[in-house]
Amino acid sequence: MIEVKNIRKKYGGKTVLEDISFTAEKGDITCLIGLNGAGKTTILNAIMGLTPIQSGQILINGEVLHKASYEKISYIPDTISMSPQMKISQGLQFMDDFYSSWNHKRASELLDFFSLSENERISRLSKGNIAKLNILLGLSLDVEFIIMDEPFSGIDLFSREQIAEVFTSNLIEDRGVIITTHEINEIEHLIDKAILLYDGTVLKEFCTEETREKEGKSVVDVMREVYQK
């Protein structure tokens, strides 16, 4: 389980996260929803130790993030996390060299699935293919948790469909997923938990299934209620 406990972050004198708390269970897809500047990416960066927080605590399976945690949790940022000078094959080799959890077979399968060429230089990839490569790099690690930042942002329809297909596959099953997205429609039916953020605070946290069954409301319905109040 990933536990985010009362985290607070200031940047340039402005509070960008204020007392954020939530949990993400293994086997669930937890979605952070919010407008631009709500703090979604900052939360993910903080979970991965890529930006410092002023107070609060983040635990992964009860432990504070440490070097071995990166074999348990993988991050798919909305920007390419591999050197643009590399070819895709070199990027895959780099992952294989440094991560014992790297699953070479799965990487090959995903390479075929996304129709990416190993000889392609990363700097020459389109935005859609960069998103696919990022997903490949993240999902080819045998980790317990995956966190994704805006995987559908700014990419073409067909790439979006391919990425959405990954969500319904066994690649995601049994893992804990935290995702941020604007394109809620693509994955609304897959989300287990939604966390609505606004200006660095949590406005509402709810289980989608429960809300659907008890109140008959979809995630979008709840978003309308909360954000258009």
Partner: peptide, 16 residues
């Protein structure tokens, strides 16, 4: 530039 390789470097399962 277009480079955000620092993400990967900081997320390597090794001491910084």
């Amino acid at each position: 530039g277009k480079n955000s390789f620092i993400y990967r470097l900081l997320m390597l399962p090794t001491s910084r």
